[in-house]
Design a protein around this nucleic acid. Structure first.
Lengths: 154, 154
DNA sequence: CACAGATCTCGGCTTAACTTGAAGTCGCCG
DNA sequence: CGGCGACTTCAAGTTAAGCCGAGATCTGTG
């Protein structure tokens, strides 16, 4: 096995993290990660970037946008090792986020089951139509959906 | 209260569904919904479009793409009322999807909790870093993440 | 030192899901 | 029947999260 290198090139980081070089540059551009430069202007990453990348990718996996992630990471003290309190705060935020998403999914799944049972599309007032709002209009089918576009998944 | 109109204009559908007119035209373009036309070429929607829209929006809410939705809807008999078997099939597909997403979220949330407990970022081998793969590299922080880009959320 | 292979920047392409704007037409109330 | 608001199409713009290629430069190894 090779010795542990102090700093990693973009290719090495890419290979170890599974994140493409292009994406790495992109993340840097967005302020999610950072790197030093050689005299020849090539990026040299500290090993800690791998932790950060794992974090970023994992968060992305559950549907958080890079902006969400970036915002969250920004609450951590820039540069220095975050305190436990910092992390707790961040985690709490995300847990709320995650819980909301899980709830939404559970609710929908259950409702979908109901719909199968009830025939759904020919039903007058399937619960599915009123997932999160209460503006049931008059007559069959008429409802006021909350514009989901704004809230994303939750 | 007004009388129930037989057919709805795009504006009425928009107001009742919370979906903008442009989005409605867009959905039509994508084959998700359809409408008849007046002699003057304006869209007139059957009330059932509201059910369909609620369905579409709800599915979107849980992260399904319009293409997913469109594919699913396409399995239903074009035009006529779907049979219960049709619905069952569709629902089964989506339930698998939903379950997968719920699982992923639960796993992550739990791991995030662990991380708070353990100090995470200063940890050598936090579970977070090995969410779904097993290629733990040598030394702290070195891992091979599965390219999440391909699988999306699940 | 030479050179192959890794990186660099930059601009443009991609997909999804719409939105915005322009220029013109409908429909219905008074 | 006049007019104004609702509607039409079409083209182009937007955001997210990158990918791709070109042309130039760096780095490390023999």
């Amino acid at each position: 096995m090779a010795k542990l290198p102090e700093m990693l090139s973009i290719g090495q980081v890419s290979e170890r993290s599974g994140v493409t070089p292009t994406a790495l540059r992109f993340y840097e551009d967005r302020g999610l990660i950072s790197a030093e430069r050689t005299t020849g202007n090539q990026r040299r990453y500290a090993r800690s970037v791998l932790r950060r990348l794992a974090f970023i990718r994992t968060a992305q996996r559950v549907g958080l946008s890079l902006e969400d992630i970036s915002t969250a990471l920004a609450t951590l003290p820039k540069g220095r090792t975050p305190t436990k309190a910092d992390w707790t705060r961040l985690a709490r935020t995300w847990q709320g986020e995650l819980n909301a998403r899980i709830d939404a999914l559970n609710r929908l799944r259950d409702k979908l089951s109901n719909c199968v049972g009830c025939g759904c599309l020919s039903l007058r007032a399937c619960e599915l139509y009123n997932t999160d709002d209460h503006l049931v209009g008059y007559g069959p089918g008429a409802v006021k959906l909350r514009p989901a576009a704004e809230g994303g998944i939750d």
